[in-house]
Design a binder for these strands. Structure first.
Lengths: 309, 309
DNA sequence: TGGCTTCGATAACTTTCGGTTATGATCGCC
DNA sequence: GGCGATCATAACCGAAAGTTATCGAAGCCA
């Protein structure tokens, strides 16, 4: 019934004391004010201004509207400013989910980049493996997921609704064989997977275990998996103690290595692709886009860290 | 930029969880919501909803708008309600000015009527003689003036801008001669003004004094005015003490009389007209109209009071 | 897996509302 | 009494907002 424009006009009339002044201050023409007031009067069914001589004066009801105008308009301005802040990266919240081994350096580096560039954008971070993080993304519980997919399977995921998601590849993560320094094969430059059919194996996270089984099946054998743990530090410990060998992504080795463990490239080579995943809608949110950018840059900066290691 | 309708829509979407639901709850069609959201999005330059499957979910910016919506809309409702209260006589303030002798019974009775009918309408009351009250009305310092004009002069006033004002006649007030009970003429049923040329006169308010001089001039003499006071009780006291005679409006005699004073009709008869004056704009304000009505009714009820006196 | 239902997007049309220009009426002032 | 300023009114114009009709797609259910 009453709209903000009407209130703005009433306030301008109260401030300026005349229709003409109000028109000037609002950038309208004088008749616009005139009929705007008339509209308001017949909508409210009340006299809002009294025409006295060639000036006008607000009635009590008119003063009421003018008084409320400041409250309404300031609330409107506040809303506008707040979304403008989000649009202008002066505010905003990004809920990021990433799988554990990415949170070692890739994610912290990206978060630091975002914080440096847009100090008021808040990125919250939760660890989650790709299946859960993508489910959370779908459920609207996060805005961004850092996920990985092993070569062969699709980048975003191997699942059906890949077109719902938008993925940006961050980096390729080579899978290497980890074995004890004391192992007979430890001094080789590389090794064929098929030569490891009789080893005891240590498996990582469920997806990694699946990938291990898949690769071995391709080579014609079923690995003897003696241990399973999601903690790659534990995997390295187990390997170091000579309890078995493991396939470990290179990304993990950059931050956690063990002086009793040697890693070798394998044949056929295998890698996983690490990507950041979001939705088409969310990607258009500035803070989300900024976080994606930061992640991409953090990923590009990675190899140097690797080389120095 | 952002309008209340947009906020209302955002809130409805937040509440209903879908465009269709919002459309239903607001009485719009579904496409209306759809393009309303799109408009808002391109105005704010931000993504406000994410389309997930066949439902929608608000983004952070969208939630911000929905959250502010309640503040803005409630402020708007408050404004609307307040003017509706004024329009519906559940609120409102009337600033009434009346000349002193009208405040004895006429005004109190009218105020009581208003208070009984519309307990929440506040009538404030200030005493003022017609010249000042009408000036105040013109200056916007009051809404209603109870004024009087002596026969011959115009009802609203004798001045130029009578068409600015709207007047409602309340009652005619007969002017009577007040003289001491001991006066030789005190037992007459009436008296010619011309027979009083040699009396000592006591004059009331400036306008009354002017009227006295005018009447006497019409009868061919100039009254010998020994006292002037605006306080009619004082006039009666002076008359009672035999210090002179006076012309006193009947309205005053209804509330203030003196057992040593006798009043008589005079010839030529004279009366003043008591009216309530406002402006055309203010008359359309419900509370003002209600007060006018109450004054008219209070004036009609008057004669009975007089008769019983 | 294939229809059925439902939901959002889009297009095209219509109407109403809000605004401007032009003009008139009136007031206050010189 | 004329002049300048102010509000009101009329006529006109355009944009914006809402509607109907239709499409595409998603989820649901058998």
């Amino acid at each position: 019934m009453i709209d903000a424009a009407g209130l703005r006009v009433m306030k301008a009339i109260a401030d300026e004391g005349s229709f003409t002044g109000a028109a000037l201050s609002l950038g309208y023409s004088q008749p616009a004010i005139s009929q705007m007031v008339r509209r308001l009067e017949q909508r409210t069914g009340t006299v809002l201004v009294e025409r006295v001589g060639r000036n006008v004066r607000l009635t009590e009801a008119g003063q009421v509207l003018a008084r409320h105008a400041v409250a309404v308009l300031s609330a409107l301005d506040a809303a506008e400013e707040e979304v403008a802040a989000i649009a202008g990266l002066r505010a905003g919240r990004v809920r990021l989910m990433a799988f554990p081994s990415s949170s070692a350096t890739l994610v912290p580096r990206a978060l630091a980049l975002v914080k440096q560039r847009f100090p008021d954008v808040q990125v919250t971070f939760t660890e989650a493996e790709p299946p859960e993080s993508l489910a959370a993304l779908k459920a609207g519980e996060c805005d961004l997921a850092v996920a990985f997919a092993y070569e062969g399977t699709d980048v975003g995921r191997g699942e059906e609704d890949m077109d719902l998601f938008v993925t940006h590849k961050l980096l390729d993560d080579e899978v290497r064989l980890a074995l004890p320094r004391t192992h007979p094969l430890a001094d080789r430059d590389g090794i064929e997977l098929s030569a490891l059919a009789t080893e005891n194996w240590i498996a990582g996270c469920p997806r990694c275990r699946g990938h291990l089984l898949q690769m071995c099946a391709n080579e014609g054998f079923t690995p003897n998996v003696g241990f399973e743990t999601e903690d790659y530090v534990a995997v390295l410990g187990l390997v170091a103690e000579g309890l078995g060998v493991a396939l470990i992504p290179d990304l993990i080795l950059r931050t956690a290595n063990h002086h009793d463990v040697v890693t070798l490239p394998i044949t056929p080579s295998s890698r996983r692709t690490i990507s950041v995943v979001t939705t088409a809608d969310l990607q258009r949110v500035p803070a989300v886009q900024a976080t994606i950018d930061a992640l991409c840059e953090a990923a590009k900066a990675k190899p140097r860290v690797l080389a120095s290691n």
